[in-house]
C-alpha cells in the first residue's frame, strides 16, 4: 500500500472537521499532508455531538429547559490537488439541533460552506526526519438563511470568516509525527432579526459586531499496520478575542466570548482490497469552556480518493 494514498486519506479524513467551524473536533484545516496534482478525494461524514452542561460565562450549569443538547450532521467534502504543492479543499454540512427537554424547537438546515487553500511552503529533510511548514487560508460563510440569534440551537453565526493558519509538522520516517498549528479567524459582522439587543449595553441595530478568534491544535500521530491505519491524538482549542459573557440565566448570543479546550482522537483505516477507499472515526471531549457547551462528539465517515486527471510526466499510484 502506498503511503501516498494513506496520506491522501488522512487529508480527507481530517477534512471532515473543516466544515464544523463552530464545533466538534479539529475545526480547521489542520493537517500537513498534500494531495498530488490531479488527485481528488471526496468524503461523506456523519457527526454527532451533545452536551448536557454548558458554561454560562464561567459558571458551569445544567438547564432543565434544554436537557441534553444534540447536534447531528451530515457533510460532504472534497480535497483536490491543484498542484503537488497547492490543494483546494471544500465542505458543506447539513445539520439538525435538538433539545431533549423544554418548550423550544431545535433547528435544521445547511450550515456554512467552506473553501480552503493549503500549500506546502517549506520542507527541511534532517536525516530520518523532516520538518514542514504549511500555510492555509480559508473562507467560510452561511449556506442558508438560518436564524443566527437562536443559540444554542442556531446552526451557526451567519458570519463570513476568513481564516489564516500556520501548520508545522515534524515527521519521523518510522511513521510517527508531531504537528502544531495556530490559526487566526477574522469574522465579518452578522445580522440578526431584531434591531435592538443588549450585551453589556444596548445596541440599536440588527448588526452584530462579531469578535475575531484564534485557535490552536497539537497532534501526535502514527501510521501503523503497514501504514493502513492512522491514529491521532489531538489537544486543541479556540479563544474568542473579545465578546461578552452570557448573563445569569440569559440566552447565549452570537458575539459571546466563546472559548474551549478539547482532547480528541481519530482512527482512519484504508482498505487494502478496495483501492482509494477508507473509513474513519473520531471522538472528542471538551475539557474547559466559556459560553459554550461541554461537548462530547463522535463522527464516522467514508472517503474515496481517485485521480481526476493524470498530470503530465507522472503516473499516479
Amino acid at each position: 500500500m502506498s503511503s501516498f494514498l494513506i496520506k491522501t486519506l488522512i487529508v480527507s479524513g481530517l477534512l471532515l472537521m473543516l466544515a464544523f467551524p463552530k464545533t466538534a473536533l479539529a475545526q480547521t484545516p489542520n493537517d500537513a499532508i498534500m494531495m498530488e496534482k490531479g488527485q481528488l478525494c471526496i468524503a461523506a461524514i456523519y457527526g454527532h455531538d451533545s452536551w448536557d452542561e454548558y458554561w454560562e460565562g464561567t459558571l458551569k450549569r445544567k438547564n432543565g429547559n434544554i436537557g441534553t443538547f444534540t447536534r447531528r450532521s451530515v457533510m460532504g467534502m472534497f480535497s483536490l490537488g491543484i498542484t503537488d504543492n497547492i490543494n483546494l479543499l471544500g465542505g458543506l454540512p447539513w445539520m439538525k439541533t435538538d433539545p431533549s427537554a423544554g418548550q423550544m424547537k431545535g433547528a435544521k438546515g445547511l450550515q456554512d460552506w467552506g473553501l480552503w487553500v493549503k500549500a506546502k511552503a517549506l520542507e527541511f529533510k534532517m536525516g530520518k526526519s523532516s520538518l514542514g511548514l504549511y500555510p492555509v487560508i480559508g473562507l467560510t460563510g452561511p449556506a442558508s438563511n438560518y436564524a443566527v440569534d437562536y443559540l444554542p440551537f442556531a446552526l451557526g453565526f451567519g458570519a463570513y470568516e476568513l481564516m489564516g493558519r500556520g501548520i508545522v509538522i515534524y515527521e519521523h520516517e518510522k511513521g510517527f509525527y508531531l504537528r502544531g498549528s495556530y490559526g487566526y479567524h477574522l469574522r465579518s459582522n452578522t445580522e440578526i432579526e431584531r434591531d435592538y439587543y443588549y450585551t453589556t449595553h444596548g445596541v440599536y441595530s440588527s448588526t452584530v459586531d462579531m469578535p475575531n478568534a484564534s485557535s490552536f491544535a497539537a497532534t501526535l500521530g502514527a501510521l501503523v499496520l503497514d501504514n493502513s491505519l492512522k491514529i491521532e491524538l489531538t489537544y486543541d482549542g479556540m479563544n474568542t478575542l473579545g465578546g461578552s459573557d452570557i448573563r445569569r440565566n440569559d440566552m447565549p448570543f452570537p458575539s459571546n466570548n466563546m472559548e474551549f479546550t478539547r482532547i480528541g482522537g481519530s482512527l482512519q483505516y484504508y482498505f487494502p482490497f478496495a483501492k482509494g477507499l477508507s473509513v474513519l472515526a473520531t471522538g472528542g471531549y471538551t475539557l474547559s469552556g466559556r459560553n459554550m457547551g461541554q461537548t462530547t462528539s463522535f463522527s464516522g465517515g467514508i472517503t474515496y480518493q481517485f485521480g481526476l486527471w493524470t498530470p503530465k510526466g507522472g503516473a499516479v499510484d
Binding site: L162, L186, N189, H201, V203, T207
Partner: peptide, 21 residues
C-alpha cells in the same frame, strides 16, 4: 493572501461603531 488578510483586518478595525442610542 497575506496582503488580503491584512487588508481585511484593517478594514475590520475601521468598521463603524454600532449605534447605542
Amino acid at each position: 493572501a497575506i496582503v488580503a488578510f491584512a487588508a481585511l483586518a484593517i478594514l475590520q478595525s475601521c468598521e463603524k461603531d454600532l449605534p447605542t442610542n
